[in-house]
Design a protein around this nucleic acid. Sequence first.
DNA 1: GCTTAATATGCGAATAATCATATATGCATT
DNA 2: AATGCATATATGATTATTCGCATATTAAGC
Lengths: 114, 114
Amino acid sequence: MLTPLVFYKALADDTRLKSLLLITAQQELCVCELMTALQLSQPKISRHLAQLRKANILADRRSGQWVFYSLHPELPAWAQKVLQQTLLANAAYLAPCRQQLTLVSERPASQSCC
Amino acid sequence: MLTPLVFYKALADDTRLKSLLLITAQQELCVCELMTALQLSQPKISRHLAQLRKANILADRRSGQWVFYSLHPELPAWAQKVLQQTLLANAAYLAPCRQQLTLVSERPASQSCC
DNA sequence: GCTTAATATGCGAATAATCATATATGCATT
DNA sequence: AATGCATATATGATTATTCGCATATTAAGC
């Protein structure tokens, strides 16, 4: 069960926060997409995603060489709302990352919602 | 201006998170009330509150020997919503603190809402 | 002025988080 | 099987946070 402390510790790092918000906005992203969006090294991104996965905040799904990360299906509703609100109210914080975000062309069709 | 990263770093500590949620629930609290609610030393509480004050998340008001802390009037709406939702959805996390919370008898009348 | 209660802060020690680098795995193509 | 790309993990060094203790500060009561 996800405690608020564990959740907010997960958000208390620039790499993790931006990754989470980008994934919240895009449904799912792979490591290399986050690399270009955040302009950070591959091990750095991978490490932080692993942290979020261990906390059951993100779920991963492998598709060929890529591993796609999305919000964990059992992420509590309050935590989802927190992410959504943060995303909507802080467009400027994410704008530079979203500009540099480039989706991989080989991306397999994902079950897009909304 | 309060960035999401600064805000979530402020929430990423047990003492600060519980203090903030208790203050969200009670409008305002002083250091000694938080000491008994959280069963922690005075310097420890004071230090963390100072951090939250420096980040403009809390405001302080002196009344005699007491210093009362409340949510900063200019705390962005999204941050207020985050605190409210966290409070509502995590009663169990706060229950022990709320049980031990004892308001000072000399408490000056505060503009209580709800 | 003196004492007590509430709060704040300086400082060094302990703890935890993060980083860069190197190495390893998994899958696809040749 | 060998090469290349995407991803994962291990390790040691660095850096940030947090803590406890002692000491200031501020206000109230005598």
